[in-house]
C-alpha cells in the first residue's frame, strides 16, 4: 500500500519552553532522522496545519519553536506537556553541518529566524573543534523578544556571541542596533573561505547578505533559509514555488548563489 503522506501521526508534547509571550518551544517526541532547518507540518484538527521549522534535535525528540501569529498557532499555544499534536514530516533539506566544518562560520539570525539555525549553533557549540571559529549574531526587536535565553549562556562559552536588539532600555546587558552593523566589525582570518548562514525576515536577510558580500564573503559561502506559505510541504500545492524552485523540496535552505536569484 502506498504511503499517504498527508495523514499525520500523533506526537506527544514533552515540554513547553516559554521564551516570550508569543514564542514557545514545544519539545515533541519524534523517532527518526531529522536535520536542523527542516520543518514539520504541525496540525491541530479543525484549525489546520502550519509549517514549523525544527529548532533542535536529539534523543527521540524534536524542538519546534512556534510563534503565535495565526489560527493554528493560537491553538497550538493552548496545548501543554502531555498533550498530543499531529505532525507530518520532516520535510525540506535542512542545514548540512558538514558544509561548514573546518572553516570560520558566522551565523546571523533575526527574530524567530534563530529557530532553524539553532540546531547548527548547538552542534558547533558541542563540537567547537569542528570549526575554525564561530560567531553568532542574533538580533531581536526588544529584550522581551529574545529567544533561547538559556542557550546563549551555554553558547557564549564556545563561540563569539553578539546578542543585539533594535531598541532597549539603557540598563540592558546586550548590544543595541541592527545585526548588519556588526558584519563589518567581524574579525576573520580568511574571509574568502569563511561560511555564513543568514536567517530572518526578508529585509533583514537582504541587508545582511549584502553586508557579508561587502565584507568579502563569497556568494557560494553564504546560506540562507526561506519562509513561504506552504500547504503540503511535498511539492504539490504550489504556494512556495519561486521560479523553478520549490522551497519545500529544494529548500528551505539555499546556497546564496541560488537563493539570491529567487524572485517571488
Amino acid at each position: 500500500m502506498m504511503k499517504n503522506e498527508y495523514v499525520p501521526f500523533l506526537s506527544e508534547i514533552k515540554e513547553v519552553i516559554k521564551h516570550t509571550d508569543i514564542e514557545y518551544t514545544f519539545r515533541m517526541t519524534y523517532d527518526g532522522e531529522v536535520k536542523p532547518g527542516q520543518f514539520f507540518e504541525v496540525s491541530i484538527p479543525k484549525y489546520g496545519e502550519a509549517p514549523i521549522s525544527v529548532s533542535g534535535v536529539g534523543g527521540g525528540l524534536v524542538d519546534l519553536t512556534i510563534r503565535r501569529v495565526g489560527k493554528v498557532t493560537n491553538e497550538i499555544f493552548e496545548r501543554y506537556a502531555g498533550d498530543r499534536m499531529f505532525l507530518r514530516g520532516p520535510y525540506g533539506n535542512g542545514f548540512d553541518v558538514n558544509l561548514y566544518k573546518g572553516r570560520e562560520l558566522v551565523v546571523i539570525a533575526g527574530g524567530t529566524g534563530l529557530s532553524p539555525v539553532r540546531g547548527v549553533v548547538d552542534y558547533f557549540s558541542e563540537h567547537p573543534g569542528d570549526v575554525k571559529g564561530m560567531t553568532l549574531i542574533a538580533g531581536f526587536k526588544t529584550p522581551k523578544d529574545i529567544l533561547f535565553h538559556k542557550d546563549f549562556e551555554r553558547w557564549e562559552k564556545n563561540m563569539d556571541v553578539i546578542l543585539t536588539v533594535d531598541c532597549a532600555d539603557d540598563d540592558e546587558q546586550c548590544h543595541i542596533g541592527l545585526v548588519t552593523e556588526y558584519i563589518p566589525k567581524l574579525r576573520l582570518d580568511d574571509v574568502s573561505n569563511a561560511a555564513a548562514i543568514v536567517v530572518g525576515p526578508p529585509v533583514m536577510m537582504h541587508f545582511s547578505t549584502q553586508g557579508l558580500l561587502n565584507a568579502g564573503f563569497r556568494e557560494e559561502n553564504i546560506w540562507i533559509s526561506h519562509e513561504r506559505k506552504m500547504c503540503c510541504g511535498i511539492g504539490k500545492c504550489g504556494h512556495c514555488k519561486i521560479d523553478d524552485t520549490y522551497v519545500c523540496l529544494d529548500g528551505p535552505v539555499f546556497n546564496f548563489t541560488k537563493g539570491r536569484k529567487l524572485i517571488d
Partner: peptide
C-alpha cells in the same frame, strides 16, 4: 494548474469531528 490550499473544517453539529480537505488554489 495544480495548486491547492488546505482547509480544516469542523462539523457544526459535532465540534469534535471534522475533515481536512484541499481546494483548488489560484496564484
Amino acid at each position: 494548474c495544480t495548486c491547492f490550499t488546505m482547509q480544516d473544517i469542523f462539523y457544526t453539529d459535532n465540534g469534535k469531528v471534522g475533515e481536512r480537505r484541499r481546494v483548488t488554489a489560484s496564484c
